[in-house]
């Protein structure tokens, strides 16, 4: 029996959950290795589709979810290397598996790009956004972790959580900014106006401003701990709304 790259990615992301659980009980370190395998298949899946479609595979919901998962895995793996965030692996594994299960219900056919999307800006704009989304997702998971273990962990560890999640946001914010600006430059090339107050644009700006608020409230008022945690959660919900909600609830130029 032969598996498609999509199925292989899903299988390994799913297996990573089991191994992360086993790791906790048996004190081993296999989960990450399985997740890396999943990440490799996820990369191959994107690469293969890019080759088949002869365009960046970033044009519909299916492709977006696959690429989003890839960025989340990448962000986790890099920051795991740096800060040893392995305890998050279980949650990352669950999120990635759910993403792929969701994607399996979506239309995976390769469609040709509409004229407006046929531009080099597509790859730059969307990839920088997703890299940002990946980092901010990991930061969100960290914040949730912080929230639910607030009374159980020592202040030292909580402080570390806070610091990591801040680092992730500031790094993610950089990519969010590049995504926003390249979007404006592209809009000026394609629609003849760098800002049109289209709902997706406006919500992208709202998300950017919430994270901006988060960064400044920490810097200006030393707002650490719970307040900055809630801001981080708020930023992420706004991000999710920009990504999914706007398409379903508000109409505008970005509906493709």
């Amino acid at each position: 029996m032969r598996f498609s790259l999509f199925e292989l990615t899903l299988i390994f992301y799913f297996l990573s959950i089991i191994f992360y659980l086993l790791d906790i009980f048996k004190n081993k370190k296999i989960g990450d290795k399985i997740l890396i395998l999943g990440f490799i298949f996820n990369s191959l899946l994107i690469f293969e589709r890019w080759r088949l479609a002869q365009r960046p595979p970033l044009a519909n919901m299916y492709e977006a979810i696959v690429f989003f998962s890839w960025s989340v895995a990448l962000a986790y793996l890099i920051f795991d290397l740096k800060f040893k965030l392995r305890f998050l692996g279980l949650f990352v594994g669950i999120l990635l598996s759910l993403n792929f299960v969701f994607a399996s219900f979506l239309d995976s056919e390769i469609y040709s790009l509409v004229p407006a999307l046929r531009s080099n800006w597509l790859a730059i704009h969307v990839i920088s956004y997703f890299l940002g989304y990946g980092l901010l997702t990991i930061s969100f998971i960290l914040s949730l972790f912080y929230l639910f273990s607030f009374n159980k962990l020592s202040l030292d560890i909580l402080k570390k959580f806070d610091f990591w999640s801040y680092q992730l946001v500031s790094f993610g914010f950089l990519f969010l900014t590049i995504g926003l600006l390249t979007g404006a430059v592209w809009a000026n090339v394609c629609w003849g106006s760098y800002w049109s107050w289209d709902p997706k644009e406006t919500w992208a700006l709202i998300t950017w401003l919430i994270y901006l608020f988060y960064l400044h409230s920490r810097y200006l008022e030393g707002g650490k701990g719970k307040r900055s945690l809630y801001l981080n959660l708020l930023g992420f919900f706004s991000l999710l709304f920009t990504f999914f909600g706007v398409n379903f609830l508000l109409s505008g130029l970005h509906s493709y």
Binding site: L212, L220, E221
Partner: peptide, 14 residues
């Protein structure tokens, strides 16, 4: 402090 207040108002207006 005004920066933060203004940012919050801008977000709400948007």
């Amino acid at each position: 402090r005004l920066t933060l207040i203004l940012l919050a108002i801008i977000i709400l207006v948007l």
